[in-house]
């Protein structure tokens, strides 16, 4: 199987200062993880042009895009306590989104392989009209919307330690996108409760499984297996995109989940079961800020998909969260029933 690497993109100039963990130097660790696979020239690296405004406007409002472009052109600045933009950030964000599109194009062309999109700024917190959580443009959403625009159905699995509020809100009422997230809760951004199940046009197509601090890899896998799998199988996606944040690693400074690199290998194997046919899986880098953990986890994730052995830590077991998974399943079920009954009573009253 071919590994397509659409990146690394980004710019050193998109920089929040020495204390800020989301830096271009993360790419040393990420690409170190790719190198550790030992694939050499077997890796395919497509060109990664900037995404066009039309591509971005499928998921972001034009007013937001114009404002972000102007904000950067005027020198940028801090957007909130976490999120910043610099002069070059607009181009960096367009290039990051473009890399995702290039990855899908390469998969389409080859009809086989797995694509990895190592880009920054990350994307899954960016909403239709708002930058936040280090994110300016929602890269995985731009990619998914390019697929739904041609009539395909997309599963997005988000295993970043933080809930992908932006991706959820963008596809909230879209019947062609199934969004599945495992994340630590409570934690930034404060969204992602199990009762958030999607809008009236897509009831059940948002699957949130909030997990407590300390949850181990077996808990995350169980969450996907028991809560999300039935919905995924019924949805039958044409494509699987992964928001693969590695900040769920136990060494990461931004979260308190307890995964090891071996858990990311297991997770990627699990997610690959939902891929309908070869060449329909792409992984988008989101978070992940501890360099050694990031490198090892990138190698473990891609190695598991390509059947390439890598040095990885053993998967983890026994952390808290199994009761939260059961609660999430029942909360979700009740929320869906409530919403369906509301919809049918509105239809009867119409």
């Amino acid at each position: 199987m071919t590994l397509i690497v659409a990146g690394p993109t980004g710019t050193v100039a998109h920089d929040g200062g020495a204390f800020h963990p989301e830096q271009q130097s993360r790419m040393f660790a990420v690409m170190g993880g790719v190198r550790d696979l030992g694939l050499g020239d077997e890796i395919v690296c497509p060109p990664t042009p900037k995404a066009e405004m039309d591509d971005l406007a499928r998921v972001h409002s034009l007013s937001y895009l114009n404002e972000l472009e102007a904000f950067c052109a005027e020198g940028g600045g801090d957007i909130d306590p976490d999120t910043y933009a610099r002069v070059d950030s607009w181009n960096a964000a367009r290039r990051a989104a473009g890399a995702g599109l290039a990855a899908l194009g390469a998969l389409d062309e080859r009809g086989e392989g797995v694509a990895f999109v190592p880009v920054r700024p990350p994307g899954h917190h960016a909403e239709r009209g708002r930058a936040m959580g280090f994110c300016l443009i929602n890269n995985v959403a731009v990619a998914a919307s390019s697929l739904t625009a041609r009539g395909e159905r997309v599963l997005i699995v988000d295993w970043d330690v933080h809930h992908g509020n932006g991706t959820q809100s963008i596809f909230w009422d879209d019947p062609d996108v199934l969004y599945v997230s495992t994340h630590q809760s409570p934690l930034f951004p404060g969204t992602g409760a199990a009762i958030e199940v999607g809008g009236p046009g897509a009831v059940g197509l948002t699957v949130n499984i909030p997990l407590p601090a300390g949850a181990t890899g077996d808990v995350v896998r169980s969450a996907i297996d028991h809560v999300a799998r039935p919905t995924i199988e019924e949805f039958a996606p044409d494509w699987v995109l992964v928001s693969c944040g590695f900040d769920a690693h136990r060494a990461d400074p931004l979260g308190e989940l307890a995964l090891s690199s071996g858990d990311f290998a297991e997770l990627s194997r699990l997610v690959s079961e939902f891929v309908p046919r070869p060449g329909r899986l792409a992984l988008f880098l989101e978070g992940g800020y501890e360099r050694a953990a990031l490198q090892e986890s990138v190698a473990a994730t891609l190695g598991a998909l390509l059947a390439v052995p890598t040095d990885l830590a053993a998967p983890t077991y026994g952390g808290p969260g199994m009761s939260e998974i059961r609660s999430a399943a029942s909360d979700r079920h009740r929320a869906m029933e409530r919403m369906r009954s509301l919809i049918s009573s509105e239809e009867l009253g119409a």
Binding site: E67, L68, A70, F71, D80
Partner: peptide, 12 residues
């Protein structure tokens, strides 16, 4: 203006 505000735009 919060601790992150800039200019007169919505951003920040």
């Amino acid at each position: 203006r919060g601790s992150a505000a800039h200019g007169g735009t919505l951003l920040g």
